[in-house]
Structures are given as structure tokens and as C-alpha cells.
């Protein structure tokens, strides 16, 4: 016991150290280890959740991207169709318009021709009348007097002209 005494060992101090350690362990268990390990566990779960959510989000984003591509593809196809349709329609319309224009032009031409013919005929009739008048006037001058029976004379010239015209043409 003397040796132990020299080393400063006494059973009271030994016991106090043992109790001290036990108390410290219990206190720290409640105060430090449990909360800290819980917190670490909690954080681990949070991180796992976060990662999972991020995964989900990226999956959703990929899906959305695929959907967008699909929609774009669809839209492109539709646009292609619409364009083709429009081209066909336009061609048809152009053909129609051209046809109608041709027809109208034809009509106009025919009408113009008819007009010209009518005009020519009118002019000819007019000319014939004037020639007849001139002829009468000339004959009057040559004869030096006015024909008595004017109506008869006119009829006469007309008959003549008609005769000339008939034989001339």
C-alpha cells in the first residue's frame, strides 16, 4: 500500500474518477452522441431525398424534352402538309385563273371582232348613203335643175347602187 500511496493512488480518488467517467459518458450520450448521430442520419436522409428528387426532376426534364421533340416533329410534319396542300391549291387556283382569263380574253376578242364588223357595216351603209347623196347632188348639178320627183330619184339611185353593189362584190 505504501507503493500505491507514493504513486498517489487512493481508492477514494480512483472511485471518484470512475464515477466521473460514468457520469460524463451518460451526459455526453444524451447531450452529444445521440443528437449528433441523429442529425447526421437525418441529414443523410435529406441528402438521399434531395438526390432522388433531383433524379426525378432530371427524368421529368428528359421526358419533357422528348415530348417537346415529338410535338415539334408533329408540327413540322403538319407544316409540311399544309405547305404541300397550299402549293397544290395555289397551282389549281392559278390554273383556274389562267383558264378564266383565257376565256375572257377570247370573249373580248370575239366581241371586239363583232363590234368591228358592225362598225364596218355601219360605216359602209353610211358611206353608201353619202355616195348616193353625192351622186344625186352631182347629177343635179349636171342636169342643172332639181329633179322634180325627189323620192323617185332617190329610189332610183338606191336601186342602182344596190345593183352596183350586188354586181361589184
Amino acid at each position: 500500500m505504501d507503493a500505491l500511496d507514493k504513486l498517489g493512488i487512493s481508492w477514494q480518488l480512483l472511485l471518484s474518477q470512475i464515477i466521473n467517467f460514468g457520469l460524463l459518458m451518460v451526459i455526453l450520450q444524451q447531450l452529444l452522441y445521440k443528437p449528433v448521430l441523429n442529425m447526421i442520419e437525418q441529414r443523410k436522409q435529406r441528402i438521399a431525398e434531395g438526390l432522388e428528387q433531383a433524379d426525378k426532376a432530371s427524368n421529368a426534364a428528359a421526358e419533357a424534352e422528348a415530348e417537346k421533340q415529338g410535338i415539334l416533329e408533329e408540327a413540322r410534319r403538319e407544316a409540311q402538309e399544309v405547305r404541300a396542300q397550299a402549293t397544290r391549291d395555289a397551282e389549281r387556283i392559278a390554273q383556274d385563273v389562267r383558264g378564266r382569263a383565257d376565256q375572257e380574253a377570247q370573249e373580248i376578242r370575239m366581241k371586239a371582232q363583232a363590234d368591228a364588223e358592225a362598225q364596218t357595216a355601219a360605216v359602209m351603209a353610211d358611206a353608201r348613203k353619202q355616195i348616193a347623196d353625192l351622186a344625186i347632188a352631182a347629177t343635179e348639178q349636171i342636169l342643172g335643175r332639181e329633179l322634180a320627183n325627189r323620192d323617185e330619184q332617190e329610189r332610183f339611185v338606191a336601186d342602182y347602187l344596190a345593183q352596183q353593189n350586188g354586181s361589184g362584190s
Binding site: 498517489g8 493512488i9 480512483l14 471518484s16 474518477q17 470512475i18 466521473n20 467517467f21 460514468g22
Partner: peptide, 15 residues
Amino acid sequence: SPSADLNMTLALALI
């Protein structure tokens, strides 16, 4: 330092 006190180290050793 408690580590330089044999009571402490012996107590821990016994535990």
C-alpha cells in the same frame, strides 16, 4: 493534467 494522475488512468484502465 488528469492523464498525469495515476488515479485517472487506472480508473479508465479498470473500466
